[in-house]
Nucleic acid binder design. Structure first.
Lengths: 228, 228
DNA sequence: TATACTTATGGTTAATATGACAACAAGTTT
DNA sequence: AAACTTGTTGTCATATTAACCATAAGTATA
């Protein structure tokens, strides 16, 4: 044990990475390749360098794991049960990220042998308190998606209103009325209708929309409500 | 530096303690009596014992500083800018508490020479990033009070509807309509009208109400909206 | 070619919630 | 007795909402 550590002791970062695939909400899990928990699944996590902010550590962890940057990433909270890890006392700071699965290839790196998307309803037993962290993150996502248009981060750049609604349905766990959803979401003026339609569908093609981040900036400054 | 620490290194707890006095929202600050920051004001904080959860550490810190227990206390988040303290790298976990000032006497303890309530609009320059933490806590309080009836923790056990409204006005920083406030708050069925009235007021005495925690439990299970 | 089928999109309507404000009640002070 | 202060109740036009219904625009099937 040296006096000058380059990393923070007893503190870690754990990230919940949400994705959306075939209408199903998923989370990215990794299989540990070394240590006590070898062979077990958990949330991707990491440590904090001495000179690095915790947000930056979360960004770096995410980059190391998924290769992606400029992502919606938000702190959940700190998890600090003294027995959350049996062998030593570590406080972890949870983050969650929303990524568009089409844009990124995820590859296992460093101390993990495998990285895999799990449907949110089929999460296996995870190491430590990672199931608890994931539950907390899901609840946070559910409330957050009602107050800010963060769901767009899970979708491709161009999407239909029904795709967006199905995303809300999947996250909130309840059915929505398409007519009412359409009216409410359009009333917010956050979406820009494109001159394009869906391709290769075996039914009437829906109009594609895009999320307008300029409008979002303007609206979020004076605060807005996103209740569905 | 020994191998076996009894406290967690490089992690601290800081508490925002909100009170409500004469219609004004206040926060409890302490004046440091030792160390680099001697003589300066800051949020009451402390360290985490090895065998203690972070929530328990926050409760204990609060007890040591104010003598109070069984308090509404909620974690804000972790603050982890590497330069938030100039001399060494410490990540702090912020908490906030709402207390009824009538019920407790606050006394300075341990490493502080003074503990004092400051009006939320007259907060002095605080040590480290404590002003930032306080701002974050206030914003959290503002959004939280719209989704859960936590405001009751700031009031005496029995209160009038107008007192409750003034609390909301003070926290949200805007005026409310007394008629509409009354209608909305009573519709939630969270308040129990008592057979008592205000005493010693130089105008018509208002009916006193009480917060019913049984009803709260039932309602919060199926979730409710507290928009004012 | 006609018919069924699927999803998209655009109403309709009754019930409810909201904001703004007026009116009256019950006390105290002048 | 009149003015004043705060509490309490009521009104009303408008906005919002949930729950439907109807039609449009395509594809698939017979």
């Amino acid at each position: 044990m040296t006096m000058y550590q380059t990393i923070m002791n007893s503190i870690s970062i754990d990230c919940i990475i949400f994705g959306f695939n075939n209408g199903v909400l998923e989370a990215l899990l990794v299989k540990h390749a070394i240590g006590d928990s070898k062979g077990e699944w958990g949330l991707p996590g990491g440590i904090i360098n001495k000179g690095e902010s915790i947000d930056a550590a979360a960004q770096r962890t995410l980059r190391e794991l998924t290769g992606l940057e400029n992502i919606f990433l938000e702190q959940l909270k700190a998890f600090g049960d003294p027995k959350r890890i049996p062998t030593n006392r570590v406080i972890t700071i949870g983050y969650y990220a929303l990524i568009n699965r089409e844009e990124y290839d995820v590859k296992a790196g460093l101390t993990v042998s495998e990285a895999k998307w799990y449907k949110i309803n089929s999460i296996p037993n995870l190491i430590y308190d990672h199931n608890e962290i994931l539950d907390f993150g899901l609840k946070k996502l559910q409330t957050r998606i009602l107050n800010a248009p963060i769901g767009f981060n899970l979708l491709p750049e161009k999407f239909t209103l029904l795709q967006l609604m199905h995303l809300y349905e999947e996250i909130l766990g309840k059915e929505l009325d398409k007519s009412n959803f359409r009216r409410k979401i359009l009333k917010m003026k956050l979406l820009v209708a494109l001159d394009e339609k869906q391709q290769d569908v075996s039914h009437r093609a829906a109009k594609l929309y895009q999320f307008d981040s300029d409008i979002y900036e303007k609206l979020s400054q004076k605060g807005f409500n996103f209740e569905i």
